[in-house]
């Protein structure tokens, strides 16, 4: 399946162009964010010369970004912790234990995975408000947990199913309770899957806009993405400061991506190949 050397270089050329097309918009944004407002108006396209970091300072201090960061970090961390705990418990039960209703439970999870949030958004908000959870952090956390749980359970079930049942049976013969097997055997063995799902769900929660817009309506409780999308209105005629704010949000995502690339791709490819 190896093509000849020359052909491979010919293929590489359009791929390089596409790579540039992928990175260019981000570099363009960085270039503008480093310009002063005057410089931007006079010469949009040219490379920045003054490396004006004031835009970043302005975006951070004036636009309440620090507060939005804290809100997003809090909600993301709690949601992801709950998702991982609940999904690994369910995944263990579904893959290693036999009980009545396990098939029905698995079907419920698949069905829940199929229903996109948009379809239930109106009654979901109604349900949340019946619990008085609109505009509260628990409300947003419950929204994220219920949204991202089905896929994570599916993933954990598939992952645990690959661990031989002999291991869990041996652990029980050694005198462990089922809970002991879960805590001492399954969770440690499931660490790669938990890491993968942890990163992926953190990205989902961090990047969400629709759920956050619906659940959190007061400005001080905004998550980062809602805060950033509001920046545009705050700086209608100051594009460099707006884009500096955007880059402050991009930065942690790129760092996470560079560190956890492998875990992220493992997460998104689940179910794509034969058993």
């Amino acid at each position: 399946m190896r093509s000849t050397g020359a052909a491979r270089w010919i293929i590489a050329a359009p791929m390089a162009l596409l790579a540039i097309a992928t990175i260019y918009p981000m570099l363009y944004t960085l270039n503008i964010a480093l310009k002063s407002r005057v410089d931007y108006v006079l010469d949009r396209g040219g490379l920045t010369t003054d490396f004006n970091f004031q835009n970043f300072v302005d975006a951070w201090t004036q636009a309440n970004m620090g507060r939005y960061y804290l809100n997003s970090i809090f909600v993301t961390v709690v949601s992801v912790a709950l998702i991982l705990l609940i999904s690994s418990m369910a995944g263990f039960a579904l893959s290693h234990l036999t009980f009545r209703g396990s098939r029905a439970t698995f079907l419920l999870i698949l069905a829940a995975m199929m229903i996109p949030f948009q379809v239930i958004m109106v009654p979901f908000i109604k349900t949340l408000s019946d619990f008085s959870m609109i505009n509260t952090y628990p409300g947003l956390i419950v929204a994220y947990v219920s949204q991202f749980l089905p896929f994570t359970i599916y993933f954990m079930t598939a992952y645990f199913a690959r661990i031989p049942k002999e291991i869990t049976e041996a652990a029980r013969v050694d005198g462990n309770t089922i809970y002991g097997v879960f805590g001492r055997i399954m969770l440690p063995l499931g660490r790669p899957a938990l890491l993968s799902m942890g990163i992926l769900n953190a990205l989902f929660c961090w990047n969400d806009i629709l759920i956050s817009l619906l659940v959190m309506q007061s400005p001080s409780q905004r998550t980062l993405m809602v805060g950033v999308s509001a920046l545009r209105g705050q700086y209608p005629d100051n594009v460099p400061t707006y884009l500096a704010g955007v880059l402050l949000v991009v930065l942690p995502l790129i760092v996470v991506y560079l560190i956890f690339q492998r875990q992220i791709t493992t997460g998104v490819t689940a179910g794509a190949t034969k058993g």
Binding site: L97, F99, L108, A112, P150
Partner: peptide, 18 residues
């Protein structure tokens, strides 16, 4: 045990999805 382990998942999905 199996029911204890799957209960949180089922409860959340029934109340907030189904």
């Amino acid at each position: 045990a199996p029911l204890v382990l799957v209960f949180p998942a089922i409860a959340i999905l029934l109340v907030f999805r189904v």
